[in-house]
Nucleic acid binder design. Sequence first.
DNA 1: GCGTAGTTTAACCGTGTGGTTAATGTGCAA
DNA 2: TTGCACATTAACCACACGGTTAAACTACGC
Lengths: 201, 201
Amino acid sequence: MTDEKESRERILDAAHTIFLRRGTASARTQEIADEAGVNKALLHYYFGSKEALAEEIFRRAIGDFFPRFFAILGSGLSLDEKVPLVVETYLDFLSSRPYLPGYVVSEMHVHPDRIRAVFASRGPAPLDVLTRQIEERVAAGTMRHIAVEQFVMNLVSLIVYPFVVRPAMEIVLQVDGDRFDAFISERRRTLPGFVLNALRP
Amino acid sequence: MTDEKESRERILDAAHTIFLRRGTASARTQEIADEAGVNKALLHYYFGSKEALAEEIFRRAIGDFFPRFFAILGSGLSLDEKVPLVVETYLDFLSSRPYLPGYVVSEMHVHPDRIRAVFASRGPAPLDVLTRQIEERVAAGTMRHIAVEQFVMNLVSLIVYPFVVRPAMEIVLQVDGDRFDAFISERRRTLPGFVLNALRP
DNA sequence: GCGTAGTTTAACCGTGTGGTTAATGTGCAA
DNA sequence: TTGCACATTAACCACACGGTTAAACTACGC
């Protein structure tokens, strides 16, 4: 074929779609091949096995996740600027990728080894800038003390968790996408204040 | 056999163990049968299909989750008592069930329909008590306004999320269980203050 | 036009898996 | 002791699935 996009790329895109929707274990190589408009054998020609393809997709999915998050947290912005920016950026990012969080969680639950493989290449999270900012504020008496890891975990939890339980949310709130979006919009407004306020002395 | 526990119970226990560890799709009925010390056919004798068994396990897993949470939230305790109690209870609950959150998320991601089935039997979450308590405080000027759903979501996020990403946590923090436990202990201490503080006017 | 290396396909293959079957075991009521 | 319903098993089965193979198709340098 060699049509428009290269077959290899098309297979990757298709794999992404199918793996994220069905979960790796329930995804069928045939369905991926179909989605890519390609013979199933071609998929093995390029990637060797379903397993290898799955790892590639997982690496990409995670690669999207963390860097942009820690880029903001590690930047020179002040805390008061950082928190809203992280909230806004991350909520937008996740809003446009409904299947991503559930997929990542499922995958890391069954294949914790894969996380290790991904994190082996990048270093550990660079939190020194943030640490210093917190310490300064604490010293200045404008903020309660909190361990950096706890701070980051709180921030990430508040941002990501609703997407992780989105399927349940939509049923509990009796909604389809629209009301969920509204729910997230409200979080965009309120979360920064919530987090910053929580640490006032 | 009819040994000690009834076979049916033993199969359920085994299924719970295997499904939670491997994820439903990757779990093998043979492995469940082995774990239960039982012939594979017996499992079909009692439950008809792997699918049916999986639904039963999911229903139980979720059944453990929500009721005890909303029981506390709906109780007559004051907000200042409720929040710490929820944090404490829920963190303990999850600490002793490491695979539960990941399993539930995976499962609802691939089978959103199952959630609907479970929530059809119980009603929607009873949040009226909590709503009133928030309104009273807001009226008294001792609390910022916040929508109940947002309040609950924030609370649950902060409590559950670390367990959901536990496999990644343990790699990022370069730890096995002990340091994760310490991390959670610190949350038990700090979360109630964090949440309550966040809503001061 | 021809050779060659890289793509792509149709047709297979082995097997792991969920599920079935028919026979045997077990306890208990009459 | 027999009859009967429930419980349990060993041996099968069909087939969906991941993976293979050998041949054909393309493009491109010479």
